[in-house]
């Protein structure tokens, strides 16, 4: 669906989510929305620029990649103003941004419920096994290699 989205709709949606997250940031982490506003604007801007690049470039990479790389780039020490960007975005708690996402996820729950009821028990069991596998085995690999390089 990524390619079908209208830029105007996306920008408006990001602004609305930004406002919700600012209020959550205030309720949960006691940062006033005015103080966190510049940081939130930067985050929204990075996201929109990431989308813009995706739409322009002919390579079919997910937008997430561009967004991650831009956010990473503008906060590395060599980028002009990176200290200010880091400081301002630091006022937005990343959990405050995650809560609205899971609220949207929750509200879409009923959509797939009928499809779920049709699934056999085996596929349900295997789903949980698959998610356990990817999480636990990569954790084990990380732990072993961290110990190997002597980080802890």
């Amino acid at each position: 669906m990524e390619n079908n989205l209208k830029m105007k709709d996306m920008i408006l949606t990001y602004i609305i989510i930004g406002i919700i997250a600012l209020l959550g940031n205030w309720a949960g982490y006691h940062v006033s929305p005015i103080k966190a506003l510049p940081g939130m604007l930067i985050i929204v801007l990075i996201t929109i620029v990431g989308w813009g690049i995706k739409k322009i470039l002919p390579i079919n990479l997910p937008a997430v990649i561009y967004i991650s790389l831009i956010a990473l780039l503008v906060t590395t020490k060599i980028f002009p103003g990176s200290e200010w960007i880091t400081k301002e975005t630091g006022n937005v708690n990343f959990l405050a941004l995650a809560t609205p996402i899971l609220a949207y996820a929750g509200l879409s729950f009923g959509k797939d419920l009928n499809q779920f009821k049709k699934l056999g028990w085996r596929i349900v069991v295997i789903s949980f096994v698959v998610y356990t596998g990817t999480f636990v085995i990569s954790t084990i690999m990380a732990e072993l290699s961290f110990r190997f390089i002597g980080k802890f």
Partner: peptide, 8 residues
């Protein structure tokens, strides 16, 4: 993606 931008 906003969350991903923040992590970035």
């Amino acid at each position: 993606m906003l969350f991903i931008a923040k992590l970035g």
